[in-house]
């Protein structure tokens, strides 16, 4: 699946460094600012939701009815249940719908 095993290891280690940078960076950098422009703050605040929405969006339209319906069901389930509950509902939905719709 991968070109070489070692490239995966390097990506993992680079990802680990990037992760550590976010965990230490706020203390080292952000806390030095006395005032943060509202636009910058709103942009920072939006980063995780924007990235995750971008990751999931094509799955709504690019795969099939079983997948699209499952995401709709999971979105509704997320209004009520915690993460584990949403995954259970979503898994039940995708297994059933794939069996029914092919």
């Amino acid at each position: 699946m991968f070109d070489s095993g070692s490239s995966v290891v390097w990506i993992i280690l680079a990802g680990a460094l990037a992760t550590y940078a976010t965990r230490v960076g706020g203390h080292l950098v952000l806390s030095r600012f006395h005032h943060i422009p509202r636009r910058v703050m709103a942009a920072l605040d939006a980063v995780p939701a924007a990235v995750l929405a971008s990751l999931v969006a094509p799955a709504i339209v690019s795969q099939g009815w079983a997948e699209a319906l499952t995401l709709a069901i999971a979105a509704v389930a997320a209004l009520r249940f915690n993460m584990a509950g949403v995954l259970l509902v979503g898994a039940a939905s995708i297994i059933t719908l794939r069996a029914l719709l092919g």
């Binding site: 995750l52 999931v56 997948e67 979105a75 997320a78 993460m83 995954l87 979503g90």
Partner: peptide
């Protein structure tokens, strides 16, 4: 995708 969607909803 289900996991990411649940995170977005969170």
């Amino acid at each position: 995708p289900i996991y990411f969607l649940a995170l977005v909803m969170g």
